[in-house]
Structure formats: structure tokens, C-alpha cells
């Protein structure tokens, strides 16, 4: 057994791939039960979280010499699914180009402004271009950097994605969000605010 301490940009998917496990194996391992209760979402971990990495079961396969043997590595691709909106209205049926770690995918956003792409679990960065001609918009993002919603970094990241000015003071930023969402304007990261943030950002 060994332990992995989560750094910014890690999620359970990337850590599992790094050590050669399916993410479910780590997530469902008894030694990680506390983490599972605490985080609820394998895509959203907090830097400093500790993941227990079990020893591998070594499987032996008899194989004759001087013959070719084929071993297939079962891939566990991940997914990014991004909904593009302007002033909260989805950008429907618009051409896009999504580039993640040097791999390019082009297409059209769907009827809900959604873009989806399969990615390797350790992919780190992406750029998305939406629209053409008269109005083209670019988005730059880091993968696996969504922190738990009840942390300042996690809340700020979500608000930045939702179009808020996150350069402002944290309490003022929360009040702006609470005002728009008709929540009590406490300026604090309370349960109602966390729930609404998750609902809006999707995670």
C-alpha cells in the first residue's frame, strides 16, 4: 500500500491512470471510504486529500516462448462535457473546435449548447473555439482543477466559469451571486449558496 497526496489538477481519474488502476478500484477500496464520504464526486478532489493506492494483484499468464502473445490494455477514457452559454442562454448549433493536449475535435454544439469529447485521464489543458466569422469566442481551461464547492478556490473557480468577476473580494463576489440568484445576501459560503453553485456550474 502507498498513499498519493492530491495536488491541484489531480482528480481520481488522473491518479488512477498514473498508478495503473481503474478509477473504480481506488474509489471503492475500503481504505478510501473516508475520502469517498467526504468528496462524493471522484472528479472533484481537494489538494491535500490523500488517496490510498493498493498493491497490485499480479496475475501470471503462462505463455510459450518464440510465439507472439497479444495483451490488450483496457482503456479508461474520460470525458469533458461543457455547456457554452452567453448571458445564461445556450449557444446552440454553433461550430466549435476543441483542442485538448494537442488533440483536435471539431463539430457543432448541440441543441443545449453542449460540447463533448473523450480525453485521456491525464489530459491537462484545453482550448475551445466557438462560432465563426462575425463573432468567434475562445475559452481556455485547465482540467481536473475543480475543487470542492465549499472551499474558496472551488467557489471562485465556479463563479469565474459562470462569468463573474472573481478578482473582487470573496464576500463581495458571493453577494453578487446571491443577489442574482435571489438568495439571502450573506456574503458567506453557506449551504444554500454551495447548492446553487453546484446547480449552475453542474458539479
Amino acid at each position: 500500500m502507498q498513499e498519493h497526496t492530491v495536488r491541484q489538477g489531480d482528480c481520481l481519474h488522473s491518479v488512477a491512470a498514473q498508478y495503473g488502476f481503474f478509477w473504480e478500484t481506488l474509489w471503492n477500496h475500503g481504505a478510501n471510504a473516508t475520502l469517498r464520504r467526504q468528496r462524493a464526486d471522484p472528479s472533484v478532489l481537494k489538494p491535500g486529500d490523500v488517496i490510498t493506492i493498493p498493491d497490485k494483484d499480479v496475475r501470471e499468464v503462462p505463455a510459450a516462448t518464440d510465439k507472439r502473445h497479444r495483451f490488450v490494455k483496457r482503456g479508461t477514457p474520460n470525458l469533458v462535457r461543457i455547456q457554452i452559454t452567453r448571458d445564461d442562454v445556450p449557444r446552440r448549433n454553433e461550430p466549435y473546435a476543441l483542442e485538448i493536449d494537442g488533440r483536435l475535435q471539431t463539430g457543432q454544439t448541440d441543441g443545449q449548447g453542449m460540447v463533448e469529447m473523450r480525453i485521456p485521464p491525464q489530459a491537462k489543458q484545453g482550448t475551445l473555439r466557438v462560432g465563426e466569422g462575425q463573432d468567434v469566442e475562445f475559452y481556455y481551461f485547465d482540467l481536473g482543477t475543480v475543487d470542492p464547492v465549499d472551499t474558496e478556490f472551488g467557489a471562485r473557480g465556479r463563479l469565474r466559469c459562470l462569468g463573474y468577476d472573481d478578482s473582487q473580494d470573496f464576500a463581495a463576489l458571493l453577494k453578487e451571486f446571491q443577489h442574482k440568484e435571489r438568495l439571502p445576501e450573506t456574503g458567506a459560503l453557506d449551504a444554500a449558496t454551495c447548492a446553487k453553485l453546484k446547480e449552475r456550474f453542474g458539479e
Partner: peptide, 22 residues
Amino acid sequence: TSAATIARQAINSLLRNVLNSR
């Protein structure tokens, strides 16, 4: 960082992340 934060989802996940522009 000033970049947006996006999650790597499990392949069977139904979640999405929103990027909204003002």
C-alpha cells in the same frame, strides 16, 4: 490561474460544466 476549471468526468457521467460569458 485565470483559466476556467473543468472536470474530467467518468465516461458514464451525466454531469456537465458550464462556461458562461457576460
